[in-house]
């Protein structure tokens, strides 16, 4: 990690000094355990603010939308895939960017770790593959791999798929994972069971839209929930409206979602919002052999037509 940080600073320093970029987007140290804050740096003197550890789960591609500057951006595997998606969708130009790739071994799940202990966690230290959690009368060492964000535990693109610089050697990709066990469980449910399952899943939603706003894919000038003419969905806490929001949001991410986990990480109520997007991710993989954000050379399946597209559903 420390080597990564030095390298991020060194590269950022060089890019800014040489005038290759106007700003570098990365993370600075957070004020609470297991949180870092996305930030930008515009002068070489400030690059010392940058940090890197297992608390950089926010997807930085979110901060590129419609920017006009030349930007250096720190990107782990999933961020790089969303940068690809952003370039494809004309939200940023490839030649505006210097991508500082970070091979990633996963981010830790603060919701999960907080839930493991009765007492408040006051400090979390990372050492190699261990996570040391401290609180009042508490000190416990956890294996990082046991407390990864769910999406990171299932990640098969840990290395940036696109980059101009790389802060370390590529890490080994995870292989032979059963990535969709949980999705299959839901697929096997009857429509009534599914309905109850989603009802329960969303029961604590407060409609704060943190999931939507943390997502690099959600950049519409006016989101459908904010439209008033026509008003597609009610704005109250009514469960039907809440569900409609989540279902439609997920569909808008079909074929674009990289399963970066930003939505789930952002949710203040700990709702497993990836449940929806993962089903669509699985469908895109099975139907179109498609994983979002791997290449700039190909259009995503939902904005292209091929005569051999699967059409079993048409009777």
């Amino acid at each position: 990690m420390l080597a990564y940080i030095d390298k991020i600073k060194e590269i950022s320093n060089r890019l800014l000094k040489e005038g290759k970029v106007d700003m570098v987007i990365g993370f600075r140290k957070g004020t609470v355990p297991m949180m870092n804050e996305p930030c930008f740096v515009k002068t070489p003197e400030d690059v010392d603010n940058f940090v890197w550890d297992s608390n950089c789960g926010i997807n930085l591609a979110n901060y590129l939308t419609n920017r006009k500057e030349k930007i250096g951006i720190v990107a782990k595997g999933c961020d790089s895939r969303n940068i690809v998606t952003h370039v494809i969708e004309n939200k940023i130009k490839r030649d505006q960017l210097v991508i500082i790739g970070v091979p990633c071994k996963g981010m830790i799940d603060r919701h999960k770790i907080e839930a493991m202990f009765e007492t408040e966690i006051q400090d979390v230290i990372e050492a190699d593959d261990k996570i040391i959690v401290k609180g009042q009368g508490l000190e416990k060492t956890l294996n990082k791999k046991d407390v990864l964000q769910d999406n990171c535990a299932l990640c098969i693109h840990r290395n940036p798929v696109i980059h101009d610089e790389l802060v370390g050697d590529p890490v080994e990709e995870q292989k032979d994972l059963d990535r969709y066990e949980d999705v299959r469980k839901i697929e096997f449910m009857s429509p009534e069971e599914k309905w109850r399952y989603f009802d329960d899943l969303l029961s604590t939603c407060i409609r704060c839209y943190a999931c939507r706003n943390a997502c690099p894919l959600c950049y519409c000038p006016t989101c459908f929930v904010d439209e008033s003419r026509p008003q597609w969905v009610g704005k109250s806490q009514d469960p039907i409206d809440t569900r409609t929001f989540h279902f439609l949001r997920a569909y808008h991410c079909a074929g674009r979602c990289t399963d970066c986990g930003a939505c789930e990480r952002a949710c203040p109520m700990g709702i497993k919002v990836r449940t929806f997007t993962r089903k669509l991710e699985k469908d895109c993989l099975e139907l179109f052999d498609w994983e979002a954000g791997l290449t700039l050379e190909e259009r995503p399946p939902l904005d292209t037509y091929r005569p051999d597209d699967p059409d079993d559903f048409i009777k």
């Binding site: 996305p38 930030c39 407060i206 704060c208 943190a210 704005k235 109250s236 952002a266 203040p268």
Partner: peptide
């Protein structure tokens, strides 16, 4: 810079009082 403009801070806050009126 980092803000994603979600409503978490305002909805969790005990002192934020703003509301919007809707007819259904």
């Amino acid at each position: 810079f980092a803000c994603i403009n979600c409503g978490t801070c305002t909805y969790l806050c005990p002192t934020c009082w703003c509301f919007d009126i809707q007819d259904e």
